[in-house]
Write a protein that binds this DNA or RNA. Structure first.
Lengths: 252, 252
DNA sequence: TATACCAATCTTGTATACAAATAGACGACG
DNA sequence: CGTCGTCTATTTGTATACAAGATTGGTATA
């Protein structure tokens, strides 16, 4: 179990760090090579992630990082709101050690932001909520929250939300200070606002987005090496190809 | 996946129906024979259940149905309280179809109680909470709640709580009727009370129970056929053996 | 008689072999 | 020139073989 746990942990971290896009293919042999083990272990890890809703499996087609639908996204945000505010609400007080740990976490966030370590920054901003749940005395909900946070992170990537790291960090600070001051009600309000504003920033297509979305994905730029393997169609100049590529939304 | 999903689903159902005790051993080959498949599939199912906290794995020793510790139990109940009350609180109104479905579920509960189908009764009383979450529009939390309910069911068995089916059924009815009447606040209060009273009924040993508990489990009656396979020790009468069996807490 | 050691058996952990299905490429045909 | 069909190669799904560890029962010895 320890071997496959390593793999699943790393994948979750990569998701939280925004290093893996929703819809990415996770080939079994590919991962097996990467982690120097057999497909058996990889499948164990992927099965675990599938149970946690972070990965989906399409029969005989492969494993893919989850692409939360609109409903999935709404549910994940609602779940986080319910759990995080409910956990704070049911708290009487927060002990010294917990406050210390939370402040240390916030310091780490600040450092990651300052040093422009985008991956670490994203990871920490998400992990903070898990840490908060643990400090409030419920490891079970912390685990659940980790998976839900991974899902909302994927949703944020899918719906192209820009991360406002500085603001998130500020809001996290306010929450911790409210808790440290024993102002539970304020902390609950702050968390609620923090999550709501983030959710509101999502650009979720209004209607029947799946067709549009599928199309956008189909028009995604293919890997450079694959692109160069194809003969350029007659009469199509470099300029035209360049324009097509830009339109399809690929990184230039 | 469909093959292993069958197995994990059945095991969860058996847990909710109180047909499997916490700590039960789940041998791989045993399950493979039972479901007529290879150990590969069984391991896939068990891995899934382990990710959901319903089964634990002890390296090289085997798979066991979870035995929630005191902390696990507290956390699971708190999690259910937070999620169920929070979900109701964030509800504006419940539509007709949902009310109909909930009332139908309550009818099923009544029938199971009336016909003394203890397994079905237990399952439905637990499943009601999952159904409620679904009807409140959050399938994600419903899934999470299913696993948490399984854990609290295991805790209830471990800490020898008697199920008061009639009372649970009554309280479920009150919740649904409050929701149907649009009295959200009352519904939240009722759910809170329902969960709290159930949790309060647990007989959780105060201190260092693990040693005592392990012993009690060790002294549990073995299956009748195994008992009869052993030669009766010299000088031990039937009466003495009978007394030992009663003391060990087994069903007489 | 009790304890400690040892061996046999059973169970799990991992890798691999093989089957099945899908995706992609190539070629034929309208 | 476009479309359809087939064939090949890659990838997943499942079973099984083999190795390593753990438990259990027996035996020998103090």
């Amino acid at each position: 179990m320890t071997r496959s746990a390593e793999i699943s942990t790393r994948i979750v971290q990569a998701v939280l760090a925004r290093q893996i896009e929703p819809g990415s293919r996770l080939g079994e042999q590919q991962l097996a090579d990467l982690f120097d083990c057999s497909r058996t272990i990889v499948r164990e890890a992927l099965t675990n992630l599938a149970a946690r809703g972070i990965v989906t499996v399409s029969a005989r087609r492969g494993w893919f990082v989850a692409e939360p639908s609109r409903d999935d996204t709404r549910e994940a945000f609602e779940a986080r709101l319910v759990i995080e505010t409910g956990l704070i609400r049911s708290t009487r007080s927060v002990d010294k050690a917990a406050v210390k740990r939370l402040r240390a976490h916030i310091d780490q966030q600040k450092n990651a932001i300052k040093s422009d370590d985008i991956a670490l920054r994203s990871f920490l901003l998400g992990d903070f909520h898990v840490c908060l749940a643990e400090c409030l005395g419920n490891g079970t909900l912390a685990e659940i929250l980790r998976d839900l946070t991974a899902r909302t992170t994927l949703a944020a990537r899918r719906y192209q939300t820009l991360e406002d790291a500085t603001r998130s960090h500020e809001e996290h600070t306010e929450v911790v200070e409210a808790l440290a001051a024993g102002n539970i009600a304020a902390a609950e309000r702050l968390v609620s606002g923090h999550l709501s504003t983030w959710q509101d920033k999502l650009h979720i297509p209004a209607e029947d987005s799946d067709a549009v979305d599928r199309l956008r994905r189909a028009l995604k730029p293919m890997p450079v090496e694959a692109r160069n393997l194809h003969t350029r169609p007659l009469g199509q100049t470099d300029q035209k190809r360049q324009r097509l590529r830009s339109r399809s939304g690929g990184a230039s």
